[in-house]
């Protein structure tokens, strides 16, 4: 299976969670230990090695802050 990598433009995240529901690997979560400049807990991924680069998270992000790479 392909390996992927996602990057979030954290400052613009509104913590809506739509990316979380869309991720088939269930690896995205809202980082409760962080608050971005807008006052939201931003979305993040810890187990990046599990990302398959499917792009679903980016397709659902209403704020266009996710970049997805595949290798």
């Amino acid at each position: 299976m392909a390996q992927g990598k996602v990057t979030f433009r954290e400052d613009r995240c509104k913590g809506c969670g739509l990316c979380i529901t869309a991720c088939p690997k269930q690896i995205i979560f809202l980082d409760k230990n962080k608050i971005n400049i807008q006052g939201y807990n931003p979305a993040t991924v810890e187990k990046m090695e599990e990302c398959i680069g499917c792009g679903n998270c980016a397709l659902m992000c209403p704020d266009l802050i996710i970049t997805v790479e595949r290798f």
Partner: peptide
């Protein structure tokens, strides 16, 4: 490594004013 998804150049690079999770942004 290849980029499979990035922000479209068709939109000006500025934050959207919509509520969190509002699907206006996706559209």
């Amino acid at each position: 490594m290849s980029i499979v998804f990035e922000r479209t150049r068709g939109m000006v690079d500025m934050p959207l004013h919509y509520c969190p999770g509002c699907t206006h942004g996706i559209i």
